[in-house]
Design a protein around this nucleic acid. Structure first.
Lengths: 204, 204
DNA sequence: TAATATAGAAACGATGCGTTTCGAAATGGT
DNA sequence: ACCATTTCGAAACGCATCGTTTCTATATTA
């Protein structure tokens, strides 16, 4: 039976309650550190809450006290490694598009981030909260910023054309780095730039 | 303990043993039909062997007798809906590239095929046999054929450039139809053609 | 008829889930 | 100092599913 009017706030950054035993930062760090280790060693699917609790020297109840699902837990564990989001406007539209592409390539090249993002994208139906959280925090801001950059680089691209090009960028990088697990060689950025901005770069 | 020198062949198309009770086609059809129904209703992850056995009126032992993993089972259940593979050479390179693209779009637009393919691609580390089987049966022939078509359409494309363009096609369609689950609108084929064959179509 | 192979029923131990209960520890308010 | 509050760790719960095993019955061919 649910407690209902228990304390509902749970994120670390929230305000602390005025009284009572404070949250153990040692336990939190042990949990997130264990999650990172196990993710890198075994991957997302083989990560179990039981194993995290045991290796971190913590009880399962403590984990579920602060993270209600495995998805929340791993998203927070990888937070610092995910650098997908808005890109600044520099004045050079081509550079902005390049930065948009490089954000995805850089993040997808980090082992921990790639494991977590792959899980967030591919467990869509099974953990909708994780998928939505990932989209809202990272993908949507990236798309908005990238759409603006592409709009500046391709003034007559059209809105649906810009959305399509964002799918080309994200889908191609996802395919090469996360599905095929190919290293980032052969100038992926340059090739993608040439594909999405065909006529802009006539400098060679 | 494993039996070892038991009969190892298991696919329906293999030769039947000379003596003994023949395999029940009714059970096979009931199993595969149930798998298709449950996949469409609940998805791949929520499909359990126990539920299939119960709904098909069959014992679990019978299922595991013929399919050793869930991946094998669903790949066979969706076999008829997956039409990714070689495309014929028509003499018009642009048409061949278009056919290469349309194969992926058509297959990914079918509900059952899209569920199974999404599972095969995204459970890579957890069911390596399923992933490898899908790649060997469908993806590799498609890539070989598509690379040839792209090579004819882009004589100076270069091998790595052709592989990159195959990743653009597959990754973009995967992103739009399987990850974002957007319907196939806005002329996906035409847009992809324009992106991978920029200068060929100067007919407008 | 004998040998062979499949089918179904039922149970096994193992694993992980999410939850609950309990007692101990650590803080702030009074 | 004492109490209310909150977290922590340990342990156990019922549940689901896994892959396997055992047993008996059935179907087919040599």
């Amino acid at each position: 039976m649910r407690r209902g009017l228990d304390c509902e706030r749970s994120r670390m950054s929230d305000e602390r309650p005025k009284r009572g035993r404070p949250r153990s930062r040692a336990s939190r760090d042990a949990i997130l550190g264990t999650v990172r280790r196990r993710l890198l060693a075994d991957g997302y699917q083989r990560l179990t809450m039981e194993a995290v609790a045991e290796e971190a020297g913590v009880s399962k109840a403590t984990i579920y006290r602060w993270w209600t699902t495995k998805g929340e837990l791993v998203l927070e564990a990888a937070e610092a490694e995910i650098s997908i989001g808005p890109v600044p406007e520099t004045g050079d539209p081509r550079s902005d598009v390049e930065a948009t592409i490089d954000q995805v390539i850089d993040t997808f090249s980090r082992p921990l981030a790639s494991i977590v993002i792959f899980a967030a994208i591919t467990t869509g139906g099974d953990d909708p909260v994780m998928a939505r959280s990932f989209r809202d925090r990272y993908v949507h801001p990236w798309r908005a910023s990238g759409a603006a950059a592409l709009g500046r680089a391709l003034p007559d691209g059209g809105e649906s054309g810009v959305q399509f090009l964002l799918d080309v960028i994200f889908g191609t990088v996802f395919q090469r780095l996360l599905v095929l697990r190919e290293p980032n060689t052969h100038g992926l950025t340059e090739r993608l730039l040439a594909v999405v901005l065909p006529a802009v770069d006539a400098s060679h």
